[in-house]
Design a protein around this nucleic acid. Structure first.
Length: 264
DNA sequence: ACTGGCGCCTGTTTGC
DNA sequence: TGCAAACAGGCGCCAG
């Protein structure tokens, strides 16, 4: 699920529910979810620590522990999520757990195991190492244009490239392209600067709307947005024509053939 | 340097 | 109805 809006929700969840609670111990149910650190080391580092600060960039959420020690980095893959549990046992698939002294715990849940938890020095250094692009919601339009300068591939492929801009995933990229009437397979050079400026605006509108509904795409206004129809009648909310799909950059792209003409 | 394609995992949906 | 195949809101790695 997790694209930028989901990460907004998860960061808030951690900020509201996990800060300033002393970690008694950790439980790593599946060590494959930990990247670059062994479970015993992970536990050694975090036990006795307290999360003090959070940050989000694109599809990563960061949580600082201790005074000057380091940060946790969460990436949610396809099916990851974070839950704060006050009472009761961890839910199924809670492969990494931070248990607080007061009895509650943070559960990092990821049935498909594509998600990863890391220990990093700082978010800045991590973003640089991964060469991630600017956050899709904080980037300004000029920097957005610059990131697309000289690109040749499909606009959808570029929007999904986290090194171009960080945060967009399969469904919100489709939605932004729908809003702007751009077929997902259109190449970047086929788009005018005006097209790209409008697309930038559409991305902001789509992300804001998604955040407003806690990143539940089916809860978006069905009159304005395509996404609710992707999971429903599969018809264009504007024209009523059936939505079509096509593989673009290895992902299924939904689009309205009535509004988004394929490239020549 | 860029780009598209494949494989990683497993639960759920689809289709014969 | 039952089972196999296809699919899924992502990304690292590879070859062209």
């Amino acid at each position: 699920m997790p694209e930028l809006p989901d990460n907004v929700v998860y960061r808030r969840r951690i900020a509201d529910g996990a800060l300033n609670r002393k970690i008694a111990q950790t439980n790593v149910v599946d060590p494959r979810i930990l990247a670059g650190v062994e479970p015993h080391r992970f536990d050694e580092v975090l036990s006795g620590q307290t999360l003090t600060e959070t940050h989000r960039h694109g599809k990563h959420v960061f949580a600082k522990y201790g005074d000057e020690t380091g940060w946790l980095a969460f990436h949610f893959g396809m099916t990851g999520k974070v839950e704060i549990v006050e009472n009761g046992d961890p839910s199924e698939y809670a492969y990494i757990q931070l248990h607080f002294e007061d009895g509650g715990h943070l559960a990092f849940v990821c049935p498909r195991k594509f998600a990863r938890v890391r220990l990093i020095d700082t978010p800045e250094a991590f973003l640089e190492e991964k060469e991630l692009g600017p956050d899709a919601r904080r980037v300004d339009v000029e920097a957005f244009l610059e990131q697309l300068e000289g690109r040749r591939g499909s606009i959808k492929g570029r929007l999904l490239d986290q090194q171009v801009v960080a945060g967009l995933g399969n469904i919100y990229a489709d939605e932004a392209l729908y809003q702007e009437g751009i077929h997902p397979a259109t190449t970047v050079p086929e788009l005018s600067e005006a097209n790209l400026r409008s697309l930038y605006d559409a991305i902001q509108v789509v992300l804001d709307a998604a955040i407003d509904v806690e990143s539940d795409p089916t809860a978006l206004d069905p009159e304005r947005f395509m996404l609710p129809h992707r999971y429903g009648d599969e018809r264009c909310p504007d024209t009523g024509v059936p939505l079509e799909t096509e593989q673009v950059s290895g992902r299924t792209a939904y689009f309205s053939p009535a509004r988004q003409s394929p490239p020549a």
